[in-house]
Amino acid sequence: MTKETREVYVFGTCLIDLLRPEAGMAALRLLERAGFHPIFPQAQSCCGQPAFNSGYRREARAVARAQLTAFTRELPVVVPSASCAGMIRNHWPALFAGEPEETQARALAARTFELCEFLDRAGLVLQDRGESVRVALHHSCSARRETRTTASAERLLTQLSGVECLAPAHAEECCGFGGTFAIKQDALSAAMADSKCDALLATGAERLISQDAGCLLHLQGRLARRGDALPVQHIAEFLWERIA
């Protein structure tokens, strides 16, 4: 394969950009390890989901439109977040329906991939160099239902010989983040976080990992407030740490 065809875009997402850039860097490194040449357009910001899920579609479209001009080449777009990948893939086509950019948005949606999905499909081989550890994998609802890429994450983790991956009770249930839901229904969001935290702690895991920074931000904040010591990590950070 030529270098050209191995080029991929990385859409880092706004949350990772400002709050968890290590996850974005790990994603870039993992793609390199898988033999790709990742490109990080500096003009990128956010997929528009926060506004989209709050009903402000005009604003969501304006922000999404700016991304269209940042990812113009016909390259795969890899996103270290199932939530943002799902937004682009499943909701941009409708968001741009009847707009001049509709064709462009559909094309970009069709070449957008969640990171684990992309690495798994690319056949990335992971050589575990870390010490044995038990981790709880929190599947985000986006990974489960928007991108349907939970199996990819699990397949990558099973390659790691020193890692025992634990599933919490009620694994299929939402952690209560939900974007602005966490603010608008804050008490409810916290109650859902508590159920999730209890289930995660009950696994006896030493670390919590997930494909989505949103869930992690929310759970990490709640765990800290409760005084529970369970370190959290984005799956990209974790994978990179194990093989680097």
């Binding site: 880092g12 950009d17 850039p21 500096q42 916290a190 990490q220 904040g221």
Partner: peptide, 16 residues
């Protein structure tokens, strides 16, 4: 209900 997140020292754009 939660602790506040703190922005990273350097954002991903800059790190990349």
């Amino acid at each position: 209900w939660r602790e506040a997140p703190r922005p990273a020292a350097r954002d991903l754009h800059r790190l990349a």
